[in-house]
Design a protein around this nucleic acid. Structure first.
Lengths: 196, 196
DNA sequence: CTATTTCGAACCGTACCGTCTCGAAATGCA
DNA sequence: TGCATTTCGAGACGGTACGGTTCGAAATAG
């Protein structure tokens, strides 16, 4: 085991991390993935494509899935607004519409599906993916739900925890199972279910 | 490429396929998976565990995921009843309850999650998994929905296609993302959403 | 009996993994 | 201005699993 890192390591001697190499790695990873998929993607391939030594990748990321997870945040605007639209109904409708729009960027749906898949097979990455990616999305939705509850807008016979289950459940099932892009009517149906 | 197989190959000379080897392979695959997960599972390991040559596995299955998909049907009763309970509400409630019960068999949830994961990464297996496994589950639910529509039980402002999206969406999201077993209240909430 | 097929077992070349080493380049500190 | 430290690109290394092949033995249908 390594020594415990001092928590305040503000100043350190030595060469700084190359931001250029980082960008090249993330770009190459995303490009190679969209070309041939996760199976064909290898660390060696990323290193070669980025003009970088393998060690430079292994130094900063534990696996190719971790690299891709960082790459997706550069290639897709994943931030979904939780702004106040005046009512729970409008907030939820906006959240759903924006979430659906994320899948419009080419290659992003395929990448998200692959990451969720890898999260099932690689336990270590699964932990990170759940704790960082999925959790933050749930917390965004929780903002909307909490606001609705404090407004007294929230339906009586519905648990707050059920909302994310339905919202993200439908989204992910579409991505993973049917691969059919959601339409506007689905927004209507879901908001009606979750607001009444 | 192989020659096209004659579709009526009722009689064939030669040794018959060993049913004993098939069972040993499926059992070993399931056992090794529950021990160490999909990552650690290898064709060579299955062959060794089953006391079988590698060729015997490669002859009948394209990948370890295909083996596991066949193994899961032996270790879990996946058949969900679509019997008529008198009303759409009761049919749906029974379907959900039985579906949740499937996850009670130890190891089955983990295996299903791994298969869904592999389906995202291995395109060829994904095709089979979607077309055989997921499709049949959707068709079972479609029986219930169709019966409700012919009875006039089905809610007016809801598309029939949305029901499986919500039902399987929530189930799979629980399995893949939160790993929390569903409870009875979730049955109530979902049936209320999808029947009114 | 005989042709055919599957069986267990073993043997390959290939590909990628993850670790390690090397000399060069960059950076902070004295 | 030196010196220690860290990262850099590049590649060598042993290990592992793949997937395809070959072998003789066993089983089976005609």
């Amino acid at each position: 085991m390594n020594k415990v890192q001092a928590s305040d390591r503000t100043s350190k001697a030595g060469r700084k991390r190359s931001e250029q190499s980082r960008d090249a790695i993330l770009s190459a990873a995303f490009a190679l993935f969209t070309e041939s998929g996760l199976r064909a993607l290898t660390i060696e391939g990323i290193a070669a494509g980025a003009g970088v030594g393998k060690q430079t990748i292994y130094r900063w990321w534990p696996s190719k899935a971790h690299v891709l997870m960082e790459a997706v945040t550069l290639n897709a605007e994943l931030v979904v607004s939780t702004a106040d639209h005046g009512s729970y109904d409008e907030d939820l409708r906006a959240f759903l519409t924006e979430s659906f729009d994320v899948g419009r960027t080419p290659g992003v749906v395929e990448l998200l599906a692959a990451l969720m898949g890898e999260a099932q097979v690689d336990a270590e990455f699964g932990e990170v993916f759940r704790e960082q990616f999925l959790k933050s999305r749930r917390e965004a939705l929780a903002v909307i739900v909490d606001r609705a509850r404090s407004r007294g807008d929230f339906p009586r016979d519905l648990r707050p925890e059920t909302v994310p289950d339905v919202v993200f459940g439908v989204i992910w099932y579409r991505v993973l199972a049917t691969r059919t892009p959601p339409d506007e009517r689905l927004v209507d149906e879901l908001t009606r279910m979750l607001t009444s």
